[in-house]
Design a protein around this nucleic acid. Structure first.
Length: 469
RNA sequence: GUCCCCAUCGUCUAGAGGCCUAGGACACCUCCCUUUCACGGAGGCGACCCGGGUUCGAAUCCCGGUGGGGACGCCA
């Protein structure tokens, strides 16, 4: 049987890190087994779904490079199909009309909570063999409920968590269609997963409690149509924030696109996410191609994982070091212009990037740390006071006179500095540090002669003169 | 409250009864490299939630605690 997995977000917000990992694992599972990965947008909550959120999800998937073989399908476009299935369930007696009003249900729930009971539908309108149903109220539009079995248990072998067993007595008759006729989540999922031939449902473990209901519906549907099968389920534990707290809109949850803004490479985010809750021995760094070859559900941790920015930074730094300069140039150019820095006609950006790419964790850090090449340095007060002292100024003035006539190459620049060092009988850093501050504004930079070579003679001399004046 | 899930260094994890004196990675610390800061290299610190049981032998299996999380909507 061909493997078919799906990612089924509801478009009520951006694609966050947890959703991205769920999508990644579903994607990888399909790839690993030569199957298909399907994107389905679960937009039946009309009040909360927005086209912007749909676009945000699509953008996030695209940025990460999670390509889907089918879709996006939209549940709102499948209404006719849902209604058709509901009718067959009504006809078969596995669903029924419920005339309990919302207020009535709310009161019931409140009372049950007050009595410290598990809130559930009381079965008032559930048809039974020898039961007389109440008179149908005229002013209430009925919802439709699924007639869930009341005895026995639902068991499935979760591909991540192992065998899970839930008693039907714990379940109640869930609403599958609202009073206005629109079908609800648990029902749509069942119809879609079945219609789309999903073989493995890989999703967040907040759905564990929905699974027995979905299996029951699937089994009821299978009685009507024997071709319908129950898929396998794999429930992924959640991702916690760096502080160990649950990620929520109020607390730390951000769009995956935020990582783009913050200067992370998609391959770094992907690689990081792949290792969050999944392992392949001691392997830490691997391509998505490698991941797709290795991925399995057996090595997923069932426990929740805490997000760790430091490790993301480390892996991002790794991918930046690996990145080829041509693609970095385009990216860094954009980030520089966001900082209002124009690089003009200077063709040295690839070389400048090369000088810095092993020193930073994010592309934003890269952009901001090379800013001084393209605009006047911003002087760090402490560094200036420490290094640009009065006694060093004549030394730098001598250096200027030595630099002025030479051919502008790192090697010759280095020679010139050495000459000054010898002439004044100083240690190399004694000259290099003030020079560094004069040119970059701060006390840390790559090899100073290389910085000077890339900065250009005119600029170097002007900056030294400015700093010593 | 009821049901469900989870539990190895600070963090991500390896671990399928002896390979475990518990391995790797991030972070942290020390040293080396060095022209400052990084990068890189070499070391170091650091964990099996608790209690029973099964077994010759338990991080691993079972039971019970404890702690954490999730679900209980005419949301998804």
């Amino acid at each position: 049987m061909i493997v078919r997995t799906r990612f089924a977000p509801s478009p009520t917000g951006f694609l966050h890190i947890g959703g991205a990992r769920t999508a990644l694992f579903s994607w990888a599972f399909a790839k690993r087994h030569g199957g298909q990965f399907i994107l389905r947008i679960e937009d039946t909550d009309v009040a909360r779904s927005t086209p912007e959120a749909v676009q945000a999800i699509l953008d996030g998937m695209h940025w990460l490079g999670l390509d889907y073989d089918e879709g996006p399908f939209y549940q709102m476009q499948r209404m006719d199909r849902y209604k058709q299935v509901i009718q067959t369930m009504l006809d078969a007696g596995s669903a029924y009309y419920c005339y309990s009003s919302k207020d009535e249900l709310d009161a019931l729930r409140e009372q049950q909570m007050a009595n410290k009971q598990k809130p559930r539908y009381d079965g008032k309108w559930r048809p039974e063999a020898n039961k007389v149903l109440p008179a149908i109220p005229r002013d209430v539009k009925p919802a439709i409920r699924f007639k869930n079995p009341q005895v026995g248990v639902v068991v499935w072998d979760d591909l991540v968590k192992g065998r899970i067993e839930i008693a039907n007595a714990e379940l109640d008759d869930l609403i599958i269609a609202r009073a206005d006729g629109t079908p609800t989540y648990n029902f749509c999922v069942v119809v879609d997963d079945s219609d789309m031939g999903i073989t493995q449902v890989i999703r967040g473990d907040d759905h564990v409690n929905n699974t027995p209901r979905q299996i029951n519906m699937l089994m009821a549907l299978a009685e009507i149509d024997s071709a319908i099968k129950v898929p396998q389920y794999a429930h992924l534990s959640m991702i916690l924030g760096g502080d160990g707290q649950k990620l929520s809109k109020r607390h730390g949850a951000v769009s995956v696109m935020q990582y783009d803004d913050d200067g992370y490479l998609p391959e770094a985010v992907l690689n990081y996410l792949a290792r969050l809750g999944w392992s392949h021995g001691d392997d830490e760094v691997f391509s998505m191609q490698q991941f797709a070859e290795w991925f399995d559900l057996d090595h997923i941790t069932p426990s929740a994982a805490q997000f760790n920015t430091e490790k993301l930074n480390w892996i991002n730094a790794h991918y930046i070091k690996q990145a080829d300069n041509t693609s970095l140039v385009t990216d860094i150019g954009k980030r520089l212009s966001k900082l209002n820095i124009t690089i003009g006609a200077q063709g040295n950006l690839p070389a400048v990037i090369d000088l810095y790419k092993e020193r930073i964790n994010t592309l934003n850090e890269l952009a901001s740390s090379i800013a001084y090449f393209y605009q006047k340095p911003v002087f760090d007060v402490a560094a200036s006071e420490k290094h640009l002292t009065a006694d060093i100024k004549p030394v730098l003035a001598t250096l200027v006179s030595l630099l002025a006539p030479i051919d502008w190459q790192a090697e010759l620049i280095h020679q010139a500095i050495n000459e000054v060092v010898t002439q004044y009988q100083l240690k190399f850093p004694k000259v290099a540090m003030p020079l560094r501050v004069a040119l970059t504004g701060i006390a840390q930079s790559p090899s100073i002669d290389q910085v000077m070579a890339l900065l250009g003679k005119d600029e170097v001399l002007a900056r030294i003169n400015f700093a010593t004046s």
